[in-house]
Amino acid sequence: MERTERVERRPANDGPKAAARNRAALITAAREIFAEQGLDAPLSAVARSAGVGQGVLYRHFPDRTAVVKAVLEENVRQVEQAAELESTTFADVLGVLTWHLAGSAAFVGLMHADGAAGPSGILAHALALSERVETALRRHLPQGHRLDAGEDLALSVAMVSAAAVGPTREARERRAVAAWRLLGVEVGPVQAFGG
């Protein structure tokens, strides 16, 4: 009697492609989990939501601080990408920023980093990212705009981010848009960059 063995073929290892996909999935999942549960959410929930094991998460991010920094970096990168387009208006860039403020507890924490009780090691990084956000916004800020004077732009972003609270993304978005309106500032479509 001949024994037949079934050999299962494992999918080919995509190497760097898989690593890049996993990292992107982890950042997206972290943004969502942090928005729902706060910055103290279990990292196991982030890994599970990204569809990877905790070992994969820790290969990319050695600790919670690294995960938070990666989310912040990606959020700022998207605001900068929106600002790089010549056809983009100030209101459009504010729409992308507002989308991140409404959807990311980590991003809101960035705007209040000096008083935040989040993971250690975030303050200096957050301050540098805040400067990048302001630089991106100023690229399209019309001369003579009501937020053009002194620290008015940075202060307005901090005020709106403080208003972007609530139990759901929709509630946070409504409050952020209302805060911009109270400041007399027009906001474009509230959406992710490229959305």
Rank of each mutant, 00 (worst) to 15 (best):
L43R: 06
L43V: 09
S44N: 14
S44A: 14
S44C: 13
A45D: 15
V46R: 06
A47L: 07
A47E: 01
R48H: 04
R48W: 01
S49V: 03
S49D: 08
A50K: 09
G51E: 09
G51K: 00
G51A: 04
V52L: 06
V52Q: 00
V52H: 02
V52I: 06
G53C: 13
Q54L: 09
Q54C: 10
Q54N: 13
G55I: 05
L57T: 03
Y58D: 00
R59L: 15
R59F: 11
H60R: 05
H60N: 07
P62S: 07
P62T: 03
P62D: 00
R64Q: 06
A66L: 14
V67K: 03
V67W: 00
V67H: 03
V68D: 08
K69T: 07
K69S: 06
K69P: 07
A70Q: 11
V71C: 15
V71W: 15
E73P: 02
E74Q: 15
E74Y: 09
N75S: 15
V76L: 14
V79S: 02
E80C: 13
E80H: 09
E80F: 11
E80S: 10
Q81E: 09
Q81P: 03
Q81N: 07
Q81S: 06
Q81D: 05
A83S: 15
A83D: 12
E84V: 06
E84M: 08
L85D: 12
E86S: 12
S87D: 12
S87P: 10
T88A: 14
T89I: 11
T89H: 08
F90P: 04
F90L: 08
D92G: 12
D92N: 10
G95S: 06
V96C: 07
V96L: 11
V96Q: 01
L97I: 07
L97Q: 08
T98F: 00
T98Q: 04
T98C: 03
W99Y: 14
H100A: 11
H100D: 10
H100N: 12
L101Q: 13
G103F: 02
G103Y: 00
G103K: 00
S104T: 14
S104V: 15
S104Y: 12
S104C: 15
A105Y: 15
A105R: 13
A105C: 15
A106L: 09
F107M: 07
V108A: 01
G109C: 08
G109H: 03
H112Y: 01
H112T: 09
H112N: 08
D114V: 15
G115T: 01
A116D: 10
A116Q: 06
A117S: 08
G118M: 13
G118N: 11
P119F: 03
P119R: 00
P119E: 04
S120V: 06
S120K: 05
I122E: 07
L123V: 07
A124S: 12
A124V: 13
H125T: 14
H125N: 12
A126D: 02
A126N: 01
L127G: 03
L129P: 05
L129E: 05
R132Q: 15
E134T: 14
E134A: 12
T135R: 11
R138G: 04
R138Q: 01
R138P: 06
R138W: 05
